[in-house]
């Protein structure tokens, strides 16, 4: 309870979609989650960063697929599920190993990230905790895909 309360309170009793990649759990706020499904066929994009697997057609539209394992630095885990996240008008598919389910996170399991972890690469993570003896990262989907990447992917719809 020494951490700033604003973050904790914001996520208190928030319903999240709990996913797992390797030994880590990632929680996505349900408000930004559309649905989940098995990996679809993906088209690689030239010049894309390593965490971007490519583009998949989801619900009739091209959606960039981000490998959360690569993005979060524990690569080498084959994706088992895509989670379709909603970023305003944009959508992004996050490749995870497994979707555990929907749950509510208690505030006391979450802490703000230690200052050392707050790097540019880790902008996507807002909080960290321990659940079932596993590290739990609370993601902020809006920060998962850098803005310039959006522009690269869909120039026509970049700032829609």
């Amino acid at each position: 309870m020494t951490e700033p309360a604003n973050v904790i309170e914001r996520v208190e009793r928030e319903s999240v979609l709990l996913t797992r990649v390797g030994s880590r759990s990632y929680a996505l706020p349900l408000a930004g989650v559309v649905e989940c499904f098995r990996p679809l066929s993906v088209e690689a994009v030239a010049g894309a960063p390593p965490f971007l697997l490519g583009l998949s057609v989801v619900r009739g539209e091209p959606v960039p697929v981000v490998d959360l394992a690569v993005l979060m630095g524990n690569g080498g885990v084959p994706p088992g599920r895509y989670v379709l996240a909603r970023l305003g008008e944009r959508r992004v598919a996050l490749a995870v190993e497994e979707v555990v389910g929907v749950c509510k996170l208690d505030a006391d399991v979450l802490r703000d990230l230690p200052p050392l972890l707050r790097s540019a690469d880790a902008e996507a993570v807002t909080a960290v905790g321990v659940r079932d003896d596993q590290l739990l990262f609370l993601l902020r989907p809006a920060r998962v895909v850098p803005d310039d990447l959006w522009r690269t992917l869909a120039p026509g719809r970049g700032q829609a």
Partner: peptide
Amino acid sequence: NILAINASI
């Protein structure tokens, strides 16, 4: 499983 999770969402 997928449908149930989606239903939960």
